[in-house]
């Protein structure tokens, strides 16, 4: 969940699965412990070599994107492990997603080994090798299943908890401002509703939107998040603020809508199908909407006690 994730590594170098010989295949992977363990788990019963390259504990795809999983790094590990003296063939099987960072045509020149791309998922590797290193279309396509979306949702919560905590404190303290001074009663009474609204936005933008992603209308994430946030905001009012007056309710509704919109927009970083150009394009619409909406929500919330 991101906790101590930076220290979750394996030492780079050559590892065995089963009892490999000089003819056994060599697979290459990142030194993120989860990548390595998933690979080994899926290769039970095989005899082969695994060459772990130093990606500073980052998974294959992200490391390739950042340039740490590269032809240079593979060549370095090949030499360090003296791989040319351990196996007689000159072939490395790379995970397909490493292609983002590895220029495979340069590998041969750099270390004498030729690269071929295996399937995306470790679970398809045995089948791939059985078919004489042929992958079918499904092995070469990324997916974004419910399970895959669900395991990514806590990442965002871990990355944003500091912001959420400061917003919670600010909303609590500002809720105590009433005509003629400051009221601790309002701080608790109104403050809890404000905190609840932020929690509702988190639920809408960081959990419900990712989970229901393909079912929510629209393609742009700021829109999907705003839609779910709007409905969540309405439900929240109906449940907890049925007796509050209009400016207060409007402030809450705007807050849940816009905060959810932002959180959903940030989820683009975790999906395997959104282009950076596309995200920049939608942010030019999403950000102004979120900033104006959130600004108005704060104005309505603070002004509410003065308008009664």
């Amino acid at each position: 969940m991101g906790i101590a994730r930076t220290t979750y590594k394996v030492n780079p170098g050559l590892y065995c699965v089963g009892t490999p010989s000089e003819d056994s295949p060599v697979l290459v992977t990142a030194n993120y412990k989860l990548s390595f363990d998933t690979l080994r788990f899926n290769l039970q019963g095989e005899d082969l070599w695994i060459l772990v390259v130093d990606t500073r504990g980052i998974n294959v795809w992200c490391a390739a994107g950042k340039g740490t999983f590269s032809a240079d790094e593979i060549a370095r590990q090949v030499k360090q492990a003296n791989l040319d003296r351990i196996v007689t063939h000159r072939k490395l099987i790379l995970p397909q997603l490493a292609a983002v960072g590895v220029a495979s045509h340069e590998l041969k020149r750099k270390c004498g080994f030729k690269a071929v791309y295996g399937p995306i998922r470790a679970q398809d590797l045995s089948e791939y090798m059985k078919r004489n290193n042929q992958a079918d279309e499904s092995m070469r396509s990324v997916t974004f299943s419910l399970g895959e979306r669900l395991i990514l949702t806590p990442v965002e919560l871990v990355l944003t908890w500091k912001v959420v905590l400061s917003i919670t404190l600010i909303s609590l303290v500002s809720s105590g401002i009433v005509p003629g001074g400051y009221s601790l009663e309002a701080l608790w009474g109104r403050g809890l509703f404000a905190i609840g609204a932020t929690m509702a936005a988190l639920l809408a933008g960081a959990l419900v939107t990712p989970v229901l992603l393909p079912l929510i209308p629209g393609r742009q994430f700021w829109f999907k998040g705003a839609l779910v946030g709007f409905l969540m905001g309405l439900a929240y009012q109906f449940l907890f603020l049925a007796e509050a007056h209009f400016p207060e309710r409007l402030g809450i509704l705007l807050w849940v809508t816009t905060a959810s919109s932002y959180l959903a927009m940030n989820f683009t970083g975790a999906t395997p199908y959104t282009s950076l150009s596309g995200v920049e394009q939608e942010m030019r619409k999403g950000l102004p909407f979120q900033m104006i909406g959130a600004g108005l929500s704060v104005v309505f919330w603070i002004a509410a006690p003065f308008l009664q």
Partner: peptide
């Protein structure tokens, strides 16, 4: 432009 394209990074 490298990067995974989350909004926070682009901002």
């Amino acid at each position: 432009d490298d990067g995974c394209g989350c909004a926070a990074l682009i901002i």
